[in-house]
Amino acid sequence: MSLTVILFYVMAALTLVSALFVASTGNLVRSVFMFFVTLFGLAGLYVFALADFVAITQIVIYVGGILVLILFAFMLSNKETLGRLQEKGQAFIGFNNLPSAILALLFFGVLVSMIFKVMPDQLEWIANSVANGNTFKATDTTTNNLGINLMTRYLLPFEAVSILLMMVLVGAAHLSRKESGA
């Protein structure tokens, strides 16, 4: 077992354990801060999939943007929700959450059995791309080609996303504005 695989397991375990903690803890603040760890672990996993630029984007947008936004909303909104969450003193998975836990476990079983049936490493197009040398190597520079593709081949979705982002900016500002009338 090479060092890469061991590091991958460490990173995956970090991600999954912190995600489990996020899901199981009763304390909302702790769950939000543990979500940081999950996102960093995911960025590490992206690096193992040889997608450096996506990993950095994940850190910048998710950790820098989304989590700060979540923290803001949470501090602006709920003082008494927080109190109620804490006084419940939940067990790891209480009786009320049993059906959802069963649902999630069954869904996980379905997904895993599907993955083992499909055998993704033996798919035809993947075998083709390995044969043609169309796969990333660990020593490749991945970002240059991504930038060129983003500006040529994927220009239309890029522009569509930028327009959507502007609409979202206006919409979110409009929604969260203090209403004087109406």
């Binding site: 991958f8 995956a12 991600t15 999954l16 995600a19 489990l20 996020v22 899901a23 995911l42 996993l45 999939a49 959450n97 959802s100 836990a101 649902l103 999630a104 476990l105 869904f107 996980f108 997904l111 895993v112 993955i115 083992f116 055998m119 993704p120 490493d121 993947i126």
Partner: peptide, 17 residues
């Protein structure tokens, strides 16, 4: 690829929960 897919399946299930 299987490693990645199983990790992501587990994450998906946690999110669903």
């Amino acid at each position: 690829l299987t490693h990645f897919l199983i990790t992501s399946a587990a994450l998906f299930s946690i999110g669903l929960y």
